[in-house]
Amino acid sequence: MDNVAVVVDDLEAAVAFFTDLGLEPEGQARIEGPWADRTVGLDGLRSDIVLMRTPDGHGRLELTKYHTPAPVGAGSPPPPPNTLGLHRVMFTVDDIDATIARLRTHDAELLGEVVRYENAYRLCYLRGPAGIIVALAEQIG
């Protein structure tokens, strides 16, 4: 897998959120033109992207801000975790409590609570930029 893309309404805020999660900006670009229209299937596409790299260098997250056409679903309530389609993105963290505290400064909200899964992990789901669900896992065993 090369990357997973997430459409956001505030690119700068999303970059700050995922930077505090431990990802690093790897590059950015303006995407537009006939090749982009034909690839994505949208006429008049113009977007900005920032590629974020995981600390281990093995994963990337593409944050995309569409300028035209306008993104669909803006202003709608975010879907619940059991909605069909892409479910969530999970990250391993060293300290789940400290990570949650940092992400709360970006208006992240826990969907439930931090729980222990057997003697292996502490886990939680939270809502991040553009309403996406971000899961955190801290290995404990």
Results as ranks from 00 to 15, higher is better:
D107Y: 12
T19R: 11
A120S: 15
P25D: 07
I49W: 04
G27R: 08
L123Q: 06
V89L: 13
T19N: 07
D56Y: 04
R60S: 10
R116G: 11
Y125L: 14
R88H: 15
P78D: 05
T39Y: 06
H106C: 07
L123C: 06
L42H: 03
D43P: 05
G75A: 06
G75M: 02
C124Y: 00
T19M: 07
P55K: 05
G59Y: 05
R122M: 07
K65L: 15
A16E: 11
P77N: 08
E12Y: 09
H106G: 04
M90N: 10
D107P: 08
E118V: 14
P80Q: 11
E26M: 11
P80A: 15
E138R: 10
V7I: 14
R102N: 04
D94Y: 07
V115A: 15
N119M: 12
L110A: 02
G128C: 08
R88F: 14
C124Q: 00
V4K: 05
R122N: 11
A14P: 01
V40G: 01
L42P: 03
D97S: 12
E113V: 09
V15P: 03
R127P: 10
D10S: 05
A120V: 15
A108N: 02
R53C: 02
A74D: 07
G57A: 01
V50N: 01
R88D: 12
G41S: 10
E32S: 09
E113Y: 10
D43S: 11
P78T: 02
P69N: 10
I132T: 12
A36W: 03
Y117N: 13
T68M: 06
D9G: 11
F17Y: 08
E32C: 06
P34K: 12
Y125D: 10
D107Q: 15
V40H: 01
V89N: 00
I133K: 00
H67F: 13
E109H: 14
D20T: 04
G141Q: 08
P34I: 11
